[in-house]
Design a protein around this nucleic acid. Structure first.
Lengths: 219, 219
DNA sequence: ATTTGAGATATTGTATACTATCTTTAATAT
DNA sequence: ATATTAAAGATAGTATACAATATCTCAAAT
């Protein structure tokens, strides 16, 4: 298999590898506990060891593999409890993010958020799951950016990626499209009114429901 | 300068580099926004580019540098608000960690925690700041481990490192040794009694006070 | 004087070569 | 037969060589 550096987009090989391997670990393709040999990964993706090793260092920082010096890298997948815990941690941070973002976003930032919700609504009515999911992510990412805090942005983006890849999204999102839209609209309303307390409440509810939806369909 | 791989301890060069560069960024030695040239780092630490690049990937995952393809790595230090935010995020997680740890630690785990507190008390009475700080870190790390959750462990360890290195600890810890000890004893008491609510309260108080102590002495 | 662009230089990205360490294998001694 | 150990093979760690891209320099054109 080859890493497709589509078009003239030119990111380093290690970046593409990082995403691919991450996906393969989260989706369970690479089993938890199994060894990730550099040579094997090189062969699988058709690249040399240098970018592979660099991708390994990133995966290690994420906690997705464990590296034992001179022995190699071992996959550390996510257990069901890891995922459950992740929902709880994410909730804590998302609620804090809403507070900071409401306090720190300017009117232009909020317009961007408004647009995202409108796109979500548009595609919800067209039942385009793929697009709704994409704007769902974008909605949350816009809030993260609105905190103007790199640490929470980074942590939440990572968590979001983990939760997204660790379940086949389309299998369970479909039936809830309208519900999910309403939850996001409630959150956005709090931004428009600059109402921190309402925002926290709305996000807390959204997080609770997200976890319940996942548990109902996946566990 | 050379990376001292003391004795026969043999971790990869990239690991030592990672810690060194992290320290140099957090302490302000490498200015925020400045460029980290691979060649310059190689020369400074006397190693080749391979381990340097691997350390860069880890620092990038931490958000301590930003990498722009084909342009290089730029330092992204922590602003005062970043640090203030970090205290708040850490607080959220530490409180959650206490809850999980109280629920998940077995009696042996708690004995380890007890011993840590006893060492803290011993060195507090001897006014040995260095040692107290060390066991302080160990106390928190034991709680992180007690959560049995890799994600929160990893995130909190990172935050702890950032906050520790981003201020000259000894300048302000000295006067509070006994106060800090009491706060830790209160937290530990909750573990002994397996009292989640009390644990959360005690940790919340400890976090509040930590932030206040830092702000009083650093900002 | 400012702008443009070709060539030179510097820096990053990737592959390969070399070294160190670990693991396996197999031959020997008990 | 089991345990021990030495040699061979495999794999990770590091350095270097080469390729691609970006940046700089400076002369020529406007």
């Amino acid at each position: 298999m080859d890493i497709s550096n589509t078009e003239k987009n030119s990111q380093p090989l290690s970046a593409g590898l990082y995403q691919e391997i991450q996906k393969d670990i989260l989706s369970g393709e690479f089993e938890s506990g199994s060894k990730l040999t550099e040579a094997a990964v090189c062969k699988r993706y058709g690249v040399s060891r240098t970018p592979v090793r660099e991708a390994f260092r990133q995966l290690e920082a994420d906690g997705l593999i464990e590296n034992i010096p001179n022995r190699g890298a071992f996959v550390t997948g996510l257990t069901k409890r890891d995922i459950s815990d992740l929902f709880d941690l994410r909730s804590l941070f998302e609620i804090q993010a809403v507070e900071w973002a409401i306090r720190r976003m300017d009117d232009d930032d909020i317009d961007v958020l408004r647009e995202t919700v409108e796109f979500m609504e548009f595609y919800t009515l067209k039942d385009d799951i793929e697009k709704v999911l994409s704007f769902n992510s974008q909605f949350h990412n816009t809030i993260y950016a609105g905190t103007k805090d790199r640490m929470i942005q980074r942590t939440l983006s990572t968590y979001q990626t983990y939760l997204k890849h660790s379940a086949p999204a389309k299998t369970f999102t479909g039936g809830y499209l309208r519900t999910i839209l309403e939850e996001h609209k409630a959150i956005f309303a709090a931004f428009e009114n600059r109402n921190v307390a309402a925002g926290r409440k709305a996000m807390e509810y959204h997080m609770e429901q997200s976890k319940l939806r996942r548990i109902a369909n996946y566990f």
